[in-house]
Design a protein around this nucleic acid. Structure first.
Lengths: 190, 190, 190, 190
DNA sequence: AATGAATGAGTGTTCATTCAT
DNA sequence: CATGAATGAACACTCATTCAT
């Protein structure tokens, strides 16, 4: 029972996300995306009306990936463990972070520079991430305002650490800031 | 006695930096830069061999601007005040940060995505900034390793806060993280 | 008991004629025609082998329409009245003539420019129209050669008047030439 | 003393007019025009901003040609002779009229179908032509309104005759209507 | 009998780059 | 010293056409 349409569309969106992360949105041509997805060049426009539409699909794919990863942490009983998993996700992916930056931040910046609409859409992924982290901190006993402040801090520091690790081509900032944040999270959980 | 050649070159580099910050490097054409600088289109290639060369000039200009700003803080007697000036620089420029991201981080990311060479060059501006901050923290009494760690943390957090403020189109993360860091700096100065 | 296949084919031909008249043949895509006819995009090629084939169907539809309109004038007893009905047909449709030109002439020119074969086919519609008008003039007592000459003049002047009215976006040439021709016809009928 | 810029631009406009007349505007690609003018494909966009801009240049070229032809009839002392020259111009070009229609009417219709703006611009060429003919009839002693009516009739009939000659692929309508109009003009000059 | 999925060839357009002057 | 003219390669996008079902 094949769903070829959805399958190809997904493959195209995945390829577009991947190439945008590694080369940038502007430097990624429609033909590149098609080739990467193993699809005929003209076919991209069967699934997407414009390149901006591909950008929107990138945001959706990105959002879906982060949401499903977070979903996977539901097994963990303690909020601290879930928050630390967020840090570990970056550490496990340190090579890519070093080479291309944060998979979320880099792509959002790239799309935002292409068009304000895409930038706003990408911003919502950040919002969702902060919402999730704020929920975890709330579960740790923080009042809403404090929980949000902590969540924003967590995301901001990881964004900055990833940016520095990429800019300096050095995993150290990422590792050090993650270690810092882990202690900060554990301390909050006590 | 001005040297008009140099003047034009500088104007071109300034225009290139400005446009790259606001639109991105890829979306900025050589003709755009020439027009922005009030220079004849063909002349860009008199001053720069290739567009990548323009990218290098952007890095140099960026580096010069940050260095001279830092230089301007020499008047301040206390290292804490100089470090806080770094934070204030962002707060004073909050509108641009919100609209286009960190003037340093956004441009570095943009150039890094264009070519590894430019990325490495841009990375050195970050290194210099960290070196400066590490020096200030050393002056506050921290041992070298600790001073570097603190400097990296400072830059990373501001990078992340700027990125979030841009992505969310909301000045709050920048303001909150800056306030946080100011207390953290003042505490270190006691 | 309708034959749905034929019905769809007719609807497609009608849509194609309509769009060709208003936008031109080249600017009308197969997908446009399908959408306009309320038919699935892929289905056009079930009824027509190529786009040129659609062009042929346009000519046939056009021919059929003019023939049936002429047929409708059979009720009128006097040839003068039938010939004047031809003029009135244009005057009644003056808004479209102004906006898009003569429904026959514009489409013929469009198809002729697309391919000589279609141009020749479209030319036959003109021939048929001239034949009809020549028959009417013959009935008014003109010898065959004179009747054909008058018929050709009638059609030519209306073509030119329609073309001018369209080009100048002004109904005046059409109205004036039609009034002229009506007197000329009435005079011949005395 | 070469004026290469103007020269190339003119050659491109000439090629564009020629191809539009023979193939239609839509079926003429920018690459076709460049090749026809002996110019590199990318160069068209150095002289014209868009294809619509090329269309405007076509109108200008067309207008210039007709104006200069009319100018050439200044030598003729009698208005009748000048008006008959207009008819002769078509008869001398009968082969092209038969193959492609009226050089003015066909191109105007083609451009008008491409965009209303171009259609309006093309319409002004017709206006100018009518103005000229009206002036000649005025010189023959007709009051302004009558002169304009006659001028419009002259142009309209030639348009229609050319259209029919093209549609039927038969020079007869053009020749017969031209002969008719010549007698009509000579009669007015007596 | 009918169609939705898919595509390759071609379109208008942009732009980094070259070069004669 | 400086530039306007010119260009070829690449881009986003369109569309007539095919075909498995």
């Amino acid at each position: 029972m094949p769903r070829p349409a959805t399958d190809k569309r997904d493959r195209l969106a995945d390829a577009a996300l991947d190439l945008t992360y590694r080369r940038g949105f502007e430097r990624t041509s429609i033909a590149d995306i098609a080739e990467h997805a193993g699809v005929a060049p003209g076919s991209v426009y069967y699934y997407f009306k414009t390149k901006d539409d591909v950008g929107q699909a990138i945001v959706d794919t990105l959002s879906g990936r982060y949401l499903s990863v977070i979903e996977g942490w539901r097994d963990l009983a303690a909020p601290e463990d879930r928050l630390v998993s967020f840090l570990d996700m970056y550490l496990d992916d340190a090579d890519n972070v070093r080479a291309f930056g944060c998979p979320l931040g880099a792509v959002c910046a790239e799309l935002g520079r292409h068009s304000p609409e895409l930038g706003a859409a990408a911003g919502e992924v950040f919002s969702a991430l902060i919402d999730w982290a704020a929920g975890e901190f709330a579960e740790l006993g923080f009042a809403e305002a404090a929980a949000r402040a902590r969540a924003t801090h967590l995301i901001a520091v990881m964004q900055g650490a990833a940016a520095l690790t990429h800019a300096l081509d050095d995993p150290e900032p990422l590792q050090r800031e993650a270690a810092h944040l882990e202690r900060w999270i554990r301390r909050a959980g006590e």
